[in-house]
Simulated assay, not measured.
Amino acid sequence: MSELLYKHFETTRSYFLKNVEALEESIVDVQPEGFNNTLHWQVGHVLTVTEQFMFGFPKKSAHLPENYLELFGNGTKPADWQEDVPSVQVLVEQLKDQLKRFKEIPAESFQTKLKAPILGQETFGELANFSIFHEAMHLGQIQSMKRLIQGMQAK
């Protein structure tokens, strides 16, 4: 089971990084009509939420600045940003580091029962699987938003 989680996380993260690294800098902060966020936010959100799910950010993980919750946490949006925001390139490096740290999680940890269910997930492994699902869902958003923005700019 744990080998499958490592493989799925690595596959999803690899596709995510490939898509993000291919984004033109000129479009990452464009907010299309009907969207509450930007490509830049999507990248930071995946990083931040994965850190919360897998590493207990911010209480148990010091790998990301605490203000990432205010920038990229659930319910946040770029329109509310009032401080320096890390570039997409910085976020990409942090995503790569996070992948390395994920692969270092001991396999037996995935069997650990959570103190209380999180989003219906009862074990750490189920939460890891949900994290992969969450990332893949946002990858789809990034792909759609990229096409939409490029189509708007082509007009």
Rank of each mutant, 00 (worst) to 15 (best):
A128F: 14
L47F: 02
A154W: 05
S2R: 12
G120L: 06
F102R: 04
Y15I: 07
L47Y: 03
P32C: 00
K59G: 03
M54A: 01
I132S: 01
H8K: 08
Q89A: 15
H138G: 00
H63F: 15
G75V: 02
T50G: 12
W41Q: 00
E24N: 15
T50I: 14
E33I: 13
A136Y: 15
R147M: 14
E83Q: 08
I118V: 07
L71C: 06
A128V: 12
E70K: 09
T50W: 11
A107N: 07
Q98A: 13
K18Q: 13
H134Y: 01
T11V: 14
Y6G: 10
Y68Q: 05
K77C: 05
S109C: 13
E21M: 11
E122K: 08
K7S: 12
V85Q: 02
V90G: 08
V90T: 15
I149W: 07
G73R: 00
Q98W: 07
L139R: 08
K113V: 10
S14C: 07
F124E: 06
K60C: 06
N36D: 08
E122C: 04
E25F: 01
E93T: 12
K113E: 09
F55H: 11
M1L: 13
A62W: 08
K103C: 12
D80C: 01
M137H: 13
N67V: 07
Q89W: 09
F53T: 05
F72A: 05
R147S: 15
A79I: 09
T12V: 06
M137K: 12
V30P: 05
F35S: 07
F130N: 09
E126R: 12
N74C: 03
N74V: 03
N74P: 14
E104S: 14
D97M: 13
F16D: 11
T48K: 03
L5S: 06
M145D: 01
T123A: 10
L69T: 03
E104N: 13
E93W: 02
L139P: 06
A136G: 15
G120K: 04
F102L: 10
L95S: 05
L69F: 05
A107I: 02
F9H: 13
N67I: 07
E93P: 04
E126V: 08
K60E: 12
V46S: 02
E25W: 01
I149F: 07
E33V: 14
M137C: 08
E83G: 08
Q153S: 07
Q31T: 06
S131A: 15
L119C: 02
E135I: 06
Q89P: 10
G73A: 01
S87N: 04
Q42F: 04
D80F: 02
R101L: 14
S26W: 08
E3P: 10
Q150D: 15
V88G: 00
H40A: 00
K146L: 07
A107Y: 08
S2G: 14
K96I: 00
P78G: 03
N74A: 07
Q42W: 03
F9C: 11
